[in-house]
């Protein structure tokens, strides 16, 4: 029996950032969210000129978030992006599913977080109340993956077609293979590689895991062809 709120301390998106930096990031993103519509207009104007076709598919905010024009972000007032994140086509962020009595963010995402095509992030529901989702920095979320977790730590790789059950807690430095189902209320501890339905620990990751995943997400954001994550390569 694990309550989802039991170990909120020490996890979450801002663990690696200083407290001051965190508030700055939050302000920054709130601003960037406000200016998003302005950026959208500017980008639309520029589209006719020398903008390359590929680039115009993404909006880049002031804090460096690259957001696909085809992504479905709902309730952006309740979503905080830490900056330098990449949101691909048809990614769904349900910021509209917030608590009516609270103006706080319902989806908080750290830096260098890659949301793959057609993935969805939905705040989990318990007794008719939605609870916030916290996603750390350097997180890769694969295509078609649906997320209803309570928190996802930093340095996490989630593959394609995964299902992260509601109120699941994924700690830092975790690799989740493609097609994995993580049941609700599950805790995945650090340096785990899990696979299968239901998810089972298949390997304890080496000490390099956090650095390797950080480099992987930073390269993906920069537009570098990263290939397959070394921990997922077949032997």
């Amino acid at each position: 029996m694990v309550k989802p709120d039991e170990d909120e301390h020490g996890s979450g998106p801002s663990q690696k950032q200083e407290a001051a930096g965190n508030s700055a990031i939050r302000n920054n993103t709130v601003n960037s969210k406000k200016t998003q519509s302005a950026a959208q207009l500017a980008a639309k104007r520029a589209r006719g000129s020398q903008q390359q076709k590929q680039n115009s598919e993404y909006i880049e905010t002031e804090s460096g978030n690259r957001i696909s024009r085809k992504s479905a972000i709902q309730g952006s007032r309740y979503i905080v992006l830490g900056g330098k994140s990449l949101i691909e086509h048809n990614a769904v962020l349900r910021g509209d599913l917030h608590r009516p009595d609270s103006n706080g963010p319902v989806i908080a995402i750290g830096r260098y977080t890659i949301l793959g095509a057609k993935c969805s992030i939905t705040p989990p529901l318990k007794s008719e109340t939605r609870y916030p989702v916290k996603i750390g920095s350097y997180v890769h979320i694969g295509e078609n993956t649906s997320i209803q977790a309570a928190s996802i730590g930093s340095h996490v790789y989630i593959g394609n077609n995964c299902d992260i059950g509601k109120f699941a807690i994924i700690k830092e430095a975790v690799v989740i293979e493609d097609n994995t189902v993580i049941p609700p209320f599950t805790v995945i501890s650090s340096f785990s590689k899990v696979s299968g339905s239901p998810a089972k620990l298949v390997e304890e990751l080496p000490e390099s895991a956090d650095d390797v995943i950080e480099l992987y997400t930073r390269r993906l954001y920069a537009g570098i062809d990263v290939g397959i994550l070394p921990f997922l390569e077949a032997d």
Binding site: Q52, Q54, N55, R66, L215, R218, R219, A222, G223, I224, D225
Partner: peptide
């Protein structure tokens, strides 16, 4: 990071 890889590795232009 971009300087640290050959240009053939760039998959998305920014």
């Amino acid at each position: 990071l971009i300087q640290a890889v050959p240009f053939s590795h760039i998959s998305r232009q920014t």
